[in-house]
Deep mutational scan, measured.
Amino acid sequence: TEKQERAIEYIRRLGYSEEEARRILKKANGNPDLAKEIARRIG
């Protein structure tokens, strides 16, 4: 989804690889607090 793409872009800007960014997002899917934090940061 567009939100996922924005989140991946944001995480990659922090210096993670695409693969790492996707792994972090997968974790965020099972972790509402982390997901909220990422969403808050990407606006």
Score class of each variant (00 low, 15 high):
Thr1Cys: 13
Thr1Gly: 09
Thr1Val: 12
Thr1Leu: 12
Thr1Asp: 13
Glu2Gln: 12
Glu2Thr: 11
Glu2Arg: 09
Glu2Phe: 06
Glu2Leu: 11
Glu2Gly: 09
Glu2Val: 12
Lys3Tyr: 11
Lys3Val: 14
Lys3Leu: 15
Lys3Ser: 14
Gln4Asn: 08
Gln4His: 08
Gln4Phe: 07
Gln4Ile: 14
Gln4Trp: 08
Glu5Tyr: 08
Glu5Cys: 08
Glu5Val: 10
Glu5Met: 11
Glu5Phe: 08
Glu5Arg: 12
Glu5Gln: 13
Glu5Thr: 09
Glu5Gly: 06
Glu5Leu: 12
Arg6Phe: 08
Arg6Glu: 15
Arg6Ile: 10
Arg6Trp: 09
Arg6Cys: 06
Arg6Lys: 14
Arg6His: 12
Arg6Thr: 09
Ala7Thr: 10
Ala7Cys: 07
Ala7Phe: 05
Ala7Trp: 04
Ala7Tyr: 04
Ile8Met: 07
Ile8Tyr: 07
Ile8Cys: 04
Ile8Ala: 03
Ile8Trp: 05
Ile8Lys: 04
Glu9Thr: 08
Glu9Arg: 11
Glu9Cys: 07
Glu9Gln: 11
Glu9Ala: 12
Glu9Ile: 10
Tyr10Asn: 04
Tyr10Trp: 10
Tyr10Ile: 06
Tyr10Gly: 04
Tyr10Val: 05
Tyr10His: 06
Tyr10Glu: 09
Tyr10Pro: 01
Tyr10Arg: 02
Tyr10Ala: 07
Ile11Gly: 00
Ile11His: 00
Ile11Arg: 00
Ile11Val: 03
Ile11Asp: 00
Ile11Ser: 00
Ile11Gln: 00
Ile11Asn: 00
Arg12Ser: 05
Arg12Pro: 00
Arg12Trp: 03
Arg12Gly: 04
Arg13Gly: 15
Arg13Glu: 14
Arg13Thr: 14
Arg13Asp: 13
Arg13Ser: 15
Arg13Met: 14
Leu14Gly: 01
Leu14Asn: 02
Leu14Thr: 02
Leu14Tyr: 06
Leu14Phe: 06
Leu14Gln: 04
Leu14Pro: 00
Leu14Lys: 03
Leu14Arg: 04
Leu14Val: 03
Gly15Phe: 01
Gly15Pro: 00
Gly15Cys: 02
Gly15Ile: 00
Gly15Lys: 02
Gly15Gln: 02
Gly15Thr: 00
Tyr16Trp: 09
Tyr16Pro: 00
Tyr16Ala: 03
Ser17Val: 03
Ser17Phe: 02
Ser17Pro: 05
Ser17Asn: 07
Ser17Ile: 03
Ser17Arg: 05
Ser17Leu: 05
Glu18Thr: 08
Glu18Ala: 09
Glu18Lys: 07
Glu18Gln: 08
Glu18His: 08
Glu18Asp: 12
Glu18Asn: 07
Glu19Phe: 11
Glu19Asn: 10
Glu19Met: 11
Glu19Ala: 13
Glu19Thr: 11
Glu20Gly: 07
Glu20Gln: 13
Glu20Val: 11
Glu20Met: 12
Glu20Arg: 06
Glu20Phe: 13
Glu20Trp: 09
Ala21Asp: 00
Ala21Leu: 04
Ala21Asn: 00
Ala21Trp: 02
Ala21Ser: 06
Ala21Arg: 00
Arg22Asn: 08
Arg22Asp: 05
Arg22Tyr: 13
Arg22Val: 08
Arg22Thr: 07
Arg22Lys: 09
Arg22Ile: 10
Arg23Gln: 14
Arg23Trp: 15
Arg23Asn: 13
Arg23Tyr: 14
Arg23Val: 12
Arg23Pro: 00
Arg23Glu: 14
Arg23Lys: 12
Ile24Asp: 00
Ile24Pro: 00
Ile24Lys: 00
Ile24Phe: 10
Ile24Asn: 00
Ile24Gln: 01
Leu25Arg: 00
Leu25Pro: 00
Lys26Trp: 12
Lys26Leu: 12
Lys26Val: 11
Lys26Pro: 00
Lys26Ile: 12
Lys26Cys: 08
Lys27Gly: 08
Lys27Tyr: 14
Lys27Met: 15
Lys27Gln: 14
Lys27Thr: 13
Lys27Glu: 14
Lys27Asn: 10
Lys27Asp: 12
Lys27Ile: 15
Lys27Trp: 15
Lys27Pro: 01
Ala28Asn: 02
Ala28Cys: 05
Ala28Val: 05
Ala28Tyr: 03
Ala28Met: 03
Asn29Ser: 08
Asn29Lys: 12
Asn29Phe: 09
Asn29Gln: 10
Gly30Asp: 07
Gly30Tyr: 12
Gly30His: 06
Gly30Glu: 04
Gly30Asn: 09
Gly30Met: 09
Gly30Cys: 07
Gly30Gln: 05
Asn31Cys: 05
Asn31Gly: 02
Asn31Met: 05
Asn31Ile: 06
Asn31Trp: 05
Asn31His: 07
Asn31Ala: 05
Asn31Lys: 05
Pro32Ile: 11
Pro32Gln: 04
Pro32Lys: 03
Pro32Asn: 03
Pro32Leu: 09
Pro32Met: 06
Asp33Met: 07
Asp33Val: 09
Asp33Ile: 08
Asp33Arg: 10
Asp33Gly: 07
Asp33Pro: 02
Asp33Lys: 10
Asp33Thr: 10
Leu34Cys: 06
Leu34Val: 11
Leu34Tyr: 07
Leu34Met: 08
Ala35Ile: 03
Ala35Trp: 04
Ala35Cys: 04
Lys36Asn: 04
Lys36Gly: 04
Lys36Gln: 08
Lys36Ser: 05
Glu37Ala: 11
Glu37Tyr: 08
Glu37His: 09
Glu37Asp: 09
Glu37Thr: 07
Glu37Met: 08
Ile38Ala: 04
Ile38Lys: 02
Ile38Phe: 05
Ile38Thr: 04
Ile38His: 04
Ala39Lys: 01
Ala39Gly: 03
Ala39Ser: 03
Arg40Ser: 09
Arg40Glu: 15
Arg40Asp: 15
Arg40Met: 14
Arg40Ile: 14
Arg40Tyr: 09
Arg41Thr: 14
Arg41Glu: 13
Arg41Leu: 13
Arg41Cys: 13
Arg41Gln: 15
Arg41Trp: 10
Ile42Leu: 15
Ile42Ala: 14
Ile42Tyr: 14
Ile42Thr: 13
Ile42Met: 15
Ile42His: 15
Ile42Val: 12
Gly43Glu: 14
Gly43Arg: 14
Gly43Met: 15
Gly43Lys: 15
Gly43Asp: 13
Gly43Tyr: 15
Gly43Leu: 15
Gly43Thr: 15
